[in-house]
Design a binder for these strands. Sequence first.
DNA 1: GTGGTCTAGACCACG
DNA 2: GTGGTCTAGACCACA
Lengths: 126, 126, 126, 126
Amino acid sequence: MYIKINFKGKIPIYKQLRNQIVEGIATGELKRKEVLPSARQMAADLGINVHIISKSYKMLQNQDFVTIHKRKGTRVNPPFQIRRIDFEDNLFSELKTILSESYCRGISKNRVKAVVDRIYKNFTKE
Amino acid sequence: MYIKINFKGKIPIYKQLRNQIVEGIATGELKRKEVLPSARQMAADLGINVHIISKSYKMLQNQDFVTIHKRKGTRVNPPFQIRRIDFEDNLFSELKTILSESYCRGISKNRVKAVVDRIYKNFTKE
Amino acid sequence: MYIKINFKGKIPIYKQLRNQIVEGIATGELKRKEVLPSARQMAADLGINVHIISKSYKMLQNQDFVTIHKRKGTRVNPPFQIRRIDFEDNLFSELKTILSESYCRGISKNRVKAVVDRIYKNFTKE
Amino acid sequence: MYIKINFKGKIPIYKQLRNQIVEGIATGELKRKEVLPSARQMAADLGINVHIISKSYKMLQNQDFVTIHKRKGTRVNPPFQIRRIDFEDNLFSELKTILSESYCRGISKNRVKAVVDRIYKNFTKE
DNA sequence: GTGGTCTAGACCACG
DNA sequence: GTGGTCTAGACCACA
């Protein structure tokens, strides 16, 4: 999977990596049960300190996206394990913030929905 | 307008305030041309340092939501001034991140759209 | 003479007024020895407090542009009285700042000179 | 690079610093891609509070002169990034004000142009 | 009475 | 070791 880190931006590196892996899982670029590259490998590929990669992987584990095995490496979880109860509240409040700005800037509801469609179209139907 | 700050969370206070003001503008709780409470007043109300309030207000000004006037205070801009060109790119990438997680957690496209509907329903129709 | 005040901008009102009067003197819109409108009159025309107009007039007097007579009103000084010794240093440092930015933004020396020409063309040759 | 702050003058410190850095970029004293001293370092050197330095740096970032990097510090941008569209209008109105005063004080157009030449001569030819 | 500037301290996130 | 956030105080310019 192709990872692109923006070193200049405001988003911390470990979070960029986390986000892109989540996106990779959603789009199917990272298949379920696939093993992620070792932290050391990933660090070498991206030119980043190993600790940062580990931080991302741990974050992903805490959020139920992956499971870290000391021997077997880091593996993507099957979907049903990824569910989390309070996530929908979080989704609502995050959307509320970004959509408020969208609305203020004159973006219509239908336009937002079109963007949602465009994004979901890239996700794997399993 | 009612403001609720979470002092424990990870989102910085000045950003929480900024977000809630933007949401207030979108829902119509804050009318266009309305004057926001003075930085000092708001600081006293929320039990927050004045500088933080100023920071929020300046951020809102930089993003064209309000105009800060030395003598008259901070005023919400009329809608046509709020447009920003590169915002839709930003919207896309932010949605892509949050919706990837939604998808992984089993939230369907229609459910997301229902949330979008629910949020937009609270916005003012002008 | 036509005065235009921008109430939203960062430049304080008294300074905007001062600048426009200096520009009026330079372009000849305000003839030498002409009497400026009384502070009260100007205040009424612009919808501004009298004290602010007075502040501008006093500033102009301190900088040798006008002379305030209690009875006769505020009169534009003849040119030779306006000279000030340390002004050229001031001109240099102000130009240095603004031209540094011009240069950084890719504006050539000739373009700057063209702007200088355009501005000077509007000044009165007496 | 040598910085000189006037603590008594009317120009705020953060703006003086900003101006001198822009001038340093124009003259080439500050090379493109050079890292500025850390805010703390600069603050210690000048005997100024850290926040003021940060304010200058942020202002320079907003104006596209530098990029602030949390870990690597603040770096001067390469020239092509510094362009800004509406700058020439700003240049015109600023020059109009200062040149009106120059004209009133008897400084000829050629003299102004000589000053422009003198300033531009110190800028780096790339 | 408003926002702007400045100081002098603290703790935290990032890497 | 960097910048970011936050606090609690002060004085000033503008109108």
